[in-house]
């Protein structure tokens, strides 16, 4: 039911957009009609260009976010579980670092990592690291101490505690963090792909803007939104299929 509602809402939005453009409520020079954007999208799809760009962006996001998750999980577990004092000490630092505007950091990444793929992936990594790290830390923290007590009372320790308690106890929170990471990753994509790239959804936006190709600019925006939503949906599906033990919150009013 919820799903249908959101589909209807999105469809309605596009409809309003189209009508507003046709009635000249919108200045189509800056905001072309929805149908114009779709036409441009189809043209790019037909030439195969569109998929090249989507693929290039997805690959960068995959490596950037993958690396962020790969590093943040063990780091988060370590900070929350084994060295809570160190974590309390580092937390303000992490919070500050995470709040640095990623777009202002782009020149720094270019200087340090050059103009190639490394700096693009580096920016995505940097931005998506924080939500993943914070969710791993808070995921461990919110585990019910009583459950941990029960496991310990039976003599469980070390590896068993990790795999039987810590991991399943924090996985839901971690998924939520990764979803924020993905959203942020797509947001920063444009900035990352400004630097000497030849393909990518952010690249489309950047070059279309420069060349004043407005419909194409909107193709980029639309595609970032759509691919981002699809990737998030995929992760949500994964989360639901793994975390089967929680009461469905949708039921609670």
């Amino acid at each position: 039911m919820k799903k249908y509602i959101s589909v209807i809402v999105v469809a309605f939005f596009f409809l309003i957009w189209e009508i507003a453009a046709r009635l000249n409520i919108l200045d189509t020079q800056f905001i072309p009609a929805f149908s114009t954007v779709i036409k441009e999208t189809l043209a790019m799809a037909a030439s195969g260009d569109l998929f090249k760009h989507i693929f290039a962006s997805l690959l960068r996001l995959f490596f950037g976010i993958g690396l962020a998750v790969l590093i943040s999980l063990p780091l988060g577990f370590l900070l929350a579980g084994w060295t809570p004092r160190l974590s309390a000490f580092l937390n303000p630092l992490f919070t500050n670092l995470s709040m640095a505007n990623p777009f202002t950091l782009i020149p720094v990444f270019m200087l340090l990592l050059g103009m190639g793929e490394v700096s693009k992936i580096g920016i995505i990594f940097w931005v998506t690291l924080w939500p993943a790290l914070f969710s791993a830390i808070s995921g461990v923290r919110q585990i019910d101490p009583v459950v941990l007590k029960a496991a310990r009372a039976m003599g469980a320790s070390g590896v068993k505690i990790f795999f039987a308690i810590i991991l399943p106890g924090s996985v839901n929170r971690i998924f939520t963090g990764v979803k924020s990471s993905v959203t942020l990753g797509f947001t920063v994509l444009m900035g990352a792909e400004m630097i000497g790239s030849k393909a990518g959804l952010g690249f489309i936006i950047f070059t279309s803007n420069k060349n004043y190709n407005i419909p194409k600019l909107y193709v980029g925006i639309l595609m970032i939104a759509i691919t981002g939503a699809l990737v998030n949906l995929l992760i949500e599906k994964m989360q639901k299929s793994i975390v089967v033990w929680e009461e469905n919150v949708d039921r609670i009013m």
Binding site: D144, V146, V147, I165
Partner: peptide, 24 residues
């Protein structure tokens, strides 16, 4: 130890909860 708050493992089925000590 049967604790005052049941302290079951939420992510384990009933069967797997009962088997925890046996796994150990």
């Amino acid at each position: 130890f049967v604790m005052q708050s049941y302290a079951l493992f939420p992510w384990r089925t009933i069967k797997k909860n009962v088997e925890f000590g046996l796994e150990l």
